[in-house]
Design a protein around this nucleic acid. Sequence first.
DNA 1: AATCCCCCCAACCGCGCTAAT
DNA 2: GATTAGCGCGGTTGGGGGGAT
Length: 442
Amino acid sequence: MGRHSCCYKQKLRKGLWSPEEDEKLLRHITKYGHGCWSSVPKQAGLQRCGKSCRLRWINYLRPDLKRGTFSQQEENLIIELHAVLGNRWSQIAAQLPGRTDNEIKNLWNSCIKKKLRQRGIDPNTHKPLSEVENCEETTPSTTTNNTTSSQRVSGESNELNLLKGENLKAGVVVTEPKSPLVASDWFSIEGYSNTRMNNNSNNNSTTVTPTKDFFLDRFINSQRSSTPTSCKPSESMEYYPLQQLNAVSQNPALWFNQNCRPYEMNPEFNCNSISSLLPSISTSTLTTSLGHKPAISLPSNNAPPSPFNVGGVQYWEAGTSSNSSRSNSGSSSSIELQSNTSMFENSVYSWGLTDCNATGKEARMYSIEGEPDDIKWPDYLPTSYLNQTPQSICNEIKSEAQFTIDGSNNSTWHENQQQQQLQSPDIYAKDFQRYAAAFGQI
DNA sequence: AATCCCCCCAACCGCGCTAAT
DNA sequence: GATTAGCGCGGTTGGGGGGAT
């Protein structure tokens, strides 16, 4: 397929969006929803291709976007998720409510990468640069995924050192995994052991923390059940029956512990492989859920998974992927990660990276909630709106949005919004606050 | 003040995938 | 099954702002 056909049309505008265009698109989508993106520009009176409209909406106009600098917790989470997911920006973004994949990608390329390199960490492998360089010298073809013997002996990575240092400051107990560490090995929550997942009932540990090995095992077992010897996650680890994970979940810990060494296990296991285990997460699933639920939803359970909270600790949940994506479609063993937005508030880890974005005047605008004041709406809204209150603008648009164009089925977003409004009236109130904040009226 | 350079980030581009025909 | 339309994702580009010279 390749390029979208509309992109070939010559009369379409390209480049930066004007405030008028933004207003048109915003009005249209607020009223009618986007429906078919290819029809949006025509219906909205825009000289743009649908793809461009979609991008503009997703990356800029969406009302639920959180703008401004990334918080330290967000940066830390991005790094952690990148260690697992690689450049799966959309999946990373799914864990950061209000952030777009583009935004995260830009942050990574422009800032986090640099910071990691300055700290001697290879941003691609999340391993010490020295190790990567050594590996490249010795085994150029397979290198970056292997852990050196010295690293195994030391059992520490630079990242982990950073992590531990910060966590200790914060009073968080970081227990050292029993086996050699790589950079992606990180932490366990205070009060929970970092025991590897195994079914050794003689082990006195009462807490079993599912590890990334677990997902790899599942992937391996599902993908290559006929060739079990082709993958040896770790010598000490036995394959864990999926059903036992419910038992595991009775001792909830932050199961998303990254104790596996995917690169050592099988050459085919790289970040892409891992990400196939951790497919996309819809932001719509990032809802608040405070009930205690079993940590793992088995594939046979089609109930929609949700994050849960135990003792103030947010847990991610693996379950059957309900949405398809390029990376996971067709994989029956796909697992879906979930998180809670409050995870960021409760984040117990910090790598001590300085805030990449909060420099100079931006730092002044930084707020605890990660909701800086540099929202650009006032700059983009047409002057006709500047004489109105945010509430009146939204009311105006919403009041006009009580019908749909020619009754066509193009109201998915609109309907969702209405449904959400019915279910959670505070959603719009929140948006009003955002708009109002944008106008400096709060 | 003018110019250069660097960096950030919004937007574009190409590709893969799915659904519809 | 082949083709087409559309969507979404990740990589890349280039304009503009701001600091340095």
